[in-house]
Write a protein that binds this DNA or RNA. Structure first.
Lengths: 215, 215, 215, 215
DNA sequence: AATGAATGAGGATTCATTCAT
DNA sequence: GATGAATGAATCCTCATTCAT
């Protein structure tokens, strides 16, 4: 039985253990490589070397450099959404859910610092559109990104309907919080000697105190 | 008579008005070109076309593509620092200074949306280090960036010493605010139909209410 | 036990019926594959897929892609020589032999259109030499090709010695006839709706009338 | 003033002497390079070396390797059509026109042996279709090829309407003659010591005697 | 014997930079 | 000073061949 290239690509997502492993290995390496250099600066040779496979091998699992890049980010974004869901659900009330989301995401970002590099280096581009060939970035990344932002938005809306949170546009607030958290990782990278916990605390304080109804 | 490349570059910083004008024109064009495409996606041909000069001409004023890019951003970052200083100084008290900074920066970003694209697309890289050839990004950008962040930090410290602001690490808070403001521009770019004023209001509310001492 | 590559190749020429069958299958597939695409455009993957075997299997029977290609053509050229011999021998006189050769070859070409594609696409190269890696094309193909052309040449010489044919260099005439016949197949491919029989008739008429002594 | 790439390509066809010269130089080199090796075997490096320019320079004048190849052949085919027209028009009667066409084309082919190699190596492919990316070969080459074949066809039809030529399908006869002439060049390449004049004579004799009405 | 995943040399194309005009 | 034609290093991707299973 024969498969076209496209079909093969799909098959790779199936559960064949060997192929899946190799695919994951390549994604791991790509994450590291793209974490160290810009999309345009990381060459396929770099990536192959990091992964420890031949250049051609990558093309057995991914259709192009772009596909590889999008896939690597996609995987991480899904994990982030999952982390966020778990954090949100374990919160006793809205404020607690927010607190847990903040810390869960911080932990995730720190544990995946290379992903953060990779992702946010490209993210400006995502937000700001234009880039033709990377245009389908939207299609590949948006679902997981929306899922994540929606979870935070929901937590805020819950707090608002309970009367605990100030009445600001929930989605805007959620995206603001998102930016605040990401920023901690940037700061951490800038000055590795400060404590990330402190920074997380600052975000938590400012955001929660800013949201809470003090009457 | 001949000049080494270094000598030429120094000469270009001289005050010959014609040369200065042409240099500024090129920076304007670079800003637009880099605003539309990634550093690696914008070619020197693109830039020359946008500026309306020959490709070789750019090399009379800038040593390399990288130098051009760094210079264009440098100029804007200085303007941002200037704007921020004016806003901060015109504030009647700490909270007012913060409010003015938020809105001044938002206005500046909106008026220079292409710069924001250009800058923040590369910024992740800046924060997160590594990239060899762009390593001197630090040297070129850091002064103006520090100046800007220090102005916000000072305003916060003023509020804290007056007892109006909560006692969190001022610099971390300043950088958090910075991230919140930048994020507005991203959101604006994502959904151009929402009102930027609203988003600015959300940032102002969350940050100020979060910082204010409610006892 | 291990064999060097050369030993393996020799073994493959042995008469083990199974191996021979598989070898023929692969040649059949190669013929189809090379008939559809240029030598350089048909990949070993293509061929393996057409044949319905694994890519590695081909290398059990042929030393390289080039060897496969040369072998496939070699086989067909031998068949063409055989067809031509039969046609020539069944002719009652020289003119009749020529007529039979023309039609036998046309029939063969039509029945093996993919071979014709394969062969004549490469043939310019053959005639015109140079191509290093394909240089031994000569050694592999020339025997059968000479055999074919010699049969036609003999028929013409017979006609000349009988006084029926005009006295032109027989070998040149034979090669000209060969080109005329091949050309029919090209024309047929160009315009599939015209009748090949007509074209064959044109060739027969022009060649025979041109050769016959009209005194 | 600025031009898009496509516009530049068109401009190159204009009469700017420098650009035209360089373009012609490249075509000359391409002709030699493609004459020595198959389209797929001649690399852009080869061609650049033969021409004596940098690899990138070729791309200033031609959009791709394919474009270069098609352009080189196009140029020659136009010259062949022109040669053929002149020969046909200078013929005193139909038979004479044919004779002149035969010898003019032979001379042209001999003088442009590398073109013949280039062209006919690819021509099988042309006639026999398929090759996707080279599909527009048709559009680029057909006009000049049709022009050439139509000239020969006309000469034959003239002879038929004058009653001098046998009544066979004129176009088929023309294409047959074409194949006969091309074949001389092949033979010449095979055995460089034979006289091409003799071969031309054989073609002329067989074709004309075959076409002439002997009643 | 048969397979097809892995490999890396090789090739088309792009683009920052130079330099003759 | 200004230009843009020329360059070739660098990059993505393909595919013949190998070899562990």
């Amino acid at each position: 039985m024969r498969f076209t290239k496209a079909e093969k690509m799909v098959r790779n997502k199936s559960s064949n253990p060997q192929k899946t492993d190799r695919r994951e290995e390549i994604l791991d390496g790509a994450e590291r490589a793209f974490g160290r250099k810009h999309y345009h600066e990381a060459t396929m040779d770099d990536i192959a070397e990091v992964v420890g496979v031949g250049k051609g091998t990558i093309y057995l699992y991914f259709a192009s450099k772009e596909d590889l890049f999008l896939s690597a980010a996609e995987r991480k974004l899904s994990q982030l959404a999952e982390i966020t869901r778990a954090a949100s659900e374990s919160g006793s009330d809205a404020a607690d859910a927010i607190r847990r989301i903040v810390h869960a995401q911080l932990d995730f970002f720190v544990a995946n610092i290379e992903f953060v590099r990779m992702l946010f280096v490209q993210l400006g581009n995502f937000h700001l559109g234009e880039s033709q060939s990377l245009s389908d970035i939207r299609q590949r990344w948006l679902p997981a990104m929306l899922q994540t932002i929606n979870l935070t938005t929901s937590a805020i809306e819950r707090g608002q309907s309970e009367g605990a949170f100030r009445n600001v546009p929930a989605r805007d607030a959620a995206m603001t919080l998102d930016a605040m958290i990401r920023n901690c990782v940037f700061m951490q990278a800038l000055d590795p000697f400060t404590d990330l916990a402190t920074k997380g605390q600052v975000v938590e304080t400012i955001f929660l105190e800013g949201m809470l109804n003090h009457e």
